[in-house]
Design a protein around this nucleic acid. Structure first.
Lengths: 218, 218, 218, 218
DNA sequence: AATGAATGAGTTTTCATTCAT
DNA sequence: TATGAATGAAAACTCATTCAT
């Protein structure tokens, strides 16, 4: 304990982690600076010392969250894979990331509630997604050229759909579970959803020719 | 005089509508009773007069929202349509409903944030979705039997996917627009998304045989 | 007591009066909203209800103070008096006003400390002093034409001097009393200062011819 | 290394200078220890190291300011000048000193706000003004004897007036500029005020006989 | 001598809610 | 039914000051 004190980097990180947890659980407006500080084992003035304001902390939390997912996406090396495999990897990565980072979903929901005001303010955040679309675009073109993907797929729309299929599941697990009287948090259910999403996307982009090939094989 | 003297029903409705709008725009914690009353053109104290508390108003707003979508879903008559058309109708209905009721999305997000506590409390709500899944199930079976749909599609998964594709788009329009520097609120963008979603779902459920048929035709 | 409550006008006035007293005694930065409210016998939230902020209350207090002195100045009917009498009246009025309104001096000092930010913001305040200078100008011209005043006196400079002579005395009574070991707050001292200021100004504006006349008379 | 390692005296002086500037600009309550340290290019904790507290620094600043004006007044040698010239020098010295030391005015205002508590505590300060009044007294007597000054002028009143005329101008420049919509900080305006003050005082003390002489000359 | 880290006590401000009519 | 006045509790945020090195 004595060690943890008096270390700016550690304190900053502790506040960020606590902020992420509390903001995700309560939303921005529902979160209390005091609660975040207490969770970090620090006092609330340090929030102002390090981040200037509650808003500043929220923005830092968001940036860290986006930076994390970006870093993981970049760690994915898809460029050298055959198009179908590359797309498959991307779909599974998106699913697994959202499954493993529920706070990211909660933060995004809140951020959308107030018109993405923090995201828009952050140049970093708006700069980091272009490469992703470019990658999807290259993959789609390669797949179309190779005859396995349809030609008419917009890469941005595809990216949104790949995100949407797991995002909605995890974002709305609570209401969906209640409505359908099935505990969608259960590992078996999650695994089933994972298979469905992968198959759904692959089938949706598959070219007719490729489908025909598969039929003849079957 | 007659103007100034509104009847109770009108005032209640005005508060409900204003509450729906403000809660959807700001979330529960971010909403101000004062703002809701002002938007309704009424006095703040009437919120307490009619609904007892801010919480009470929120509950009433939620109930009204669910009642509305339930009514509309029941109005959809898909049973007599050929499977492809029925599925198409359902996809477009989901898309259009979410497009036209952004507050419903916002309320659902808030509801999921706190573990669906209101939804779970309501027997009505949990009763009303079983017929929907049954309908999708029948449609999928008919389509599979007719050779146009794949055999291995789970109706609940499909329902979730049909909701996910527009929901995520509308729920996250703000951040997506910021991140990709494209105004996804624009009517042309929404129309493009609508086409994409419809085609995406239809392609995903289409059987290989049907795909092959389409290829030969092309 | 029961009567004083629930009356917006009364409450507003009570806050203004308390604000004037506290701001004058402690300066803006040294004043506490809580202290002002307590002094007004109300709770501090009403400061925000009626004035929006501590700054807003301060501005209202300033405006009221300026409005008061303006109203009194306008009640002075100098236009019809012979120039010497008019000037005499103005000098005595300024002296007596500052003597009787020490809080006005304190407010002004504070306001000058922060660059007159409130005064500049207030159109009202900047509009109300032109007539005063015009009046002095007319008086000076009449006096000069009549041979009793010098010709080269700038009305704005004269106004500033007429204010300066009592203002400094009352503003700095505490330090002056300490430094000169004389209690300048004593009525006899104040009366002496009053005579000095009047004589000082009249002598300063008197034309040489008029001075010569007075000499011959003596 | 040599650069980073400043000696204690330099740091103390830097803090005093910064304190003077900030206290003058914001008042005691409105000043921030942090702002003072930053302005001095030093660390906030040094304020506590050298002066014990914010209050301690304020005291030190005040003492330095009074010591400075006292030193300058003592440097003025008026005793051997003819009365009119001596008075003229004193008026101009007062004007120029206040013009060049705006922080002195601000500190005095603050000091008066709290009843001159620091000044009264200081024997030194209360001792140093008697000679000044004595000097003015001798000058007035000499001038009256020589026929150029009036006989009935009280030296303390005159001293106060000589201070008042520039003090009020510089102390209230901000509000006066706002109210009269004229930038009284402009060098030309200050020069005009300087001429006015000199002429105003000289005319106010001039004997009638002297005035008559001047008239005949003109 | 000097500094970065941390904090307790307060300050302004907000907001759901109740009072009185 | 409707409303203006008022408030208690708690929120965000500030600041002089101390700690540890």
């Amino acid at each position: 304990m004595g060690e943890r004190r008096r270390d700016a980097k550690t304190s900053r990180q502790a506040l960020l982690a606590a902020g992420r947890a509390v903001f995700a659980a309560k939303g921005f407006a529902g979160s209390r600076v005091e609660a975040i500080a207490r969770r970090a084992g620090l006092n609330k003035q340090l929030v102002y010392h390090y981040f200037g304001s509650k808003d500043g902390l929220y923005q830092a939390v968001l940036e860290q969250a986006y930076a994390d997912i970006r870093a993981r996406e970049q760690a994915l090396v898809l460029a050298d894979l055959p198009p179908e495999l590359a797309l498959r990897e991307l779909v599974l990565f998106s699913f697994d990331y959202l499954r493993d980072h529920p706070h990211f979903i909660a933060l995004l929901n809140d951020e959308n509630l107030c018109g993405a005001q923090h995201v828009r303010r952050s140049r970093e955040l708006t700069d980091m997604h272009a490469p992703l679309i470019a990658l999807i675009d290259r993959t789609l073109r390669a797949g179309a050229a190779g005859g396995c993907f349809r030609h008419d797929i917009d890469p941005l729309q595809l990216y949104i759909s790949i995100a949407a299929l797991p995002y909605f599941y995890f974002s709305n697990t609570a209401t969906l579970s209640a409505i359908f009287r099935r505990d969608l948090r259960a590992p078996a259910e999650i695994a089933a959803r994972r298979r469905h999403v992968l198959e759904f996307v692959m089938a949706a982009v598959r070219s007719e020719r490729q489908a025909a090939v598969q039929e003849r094989a079957a």
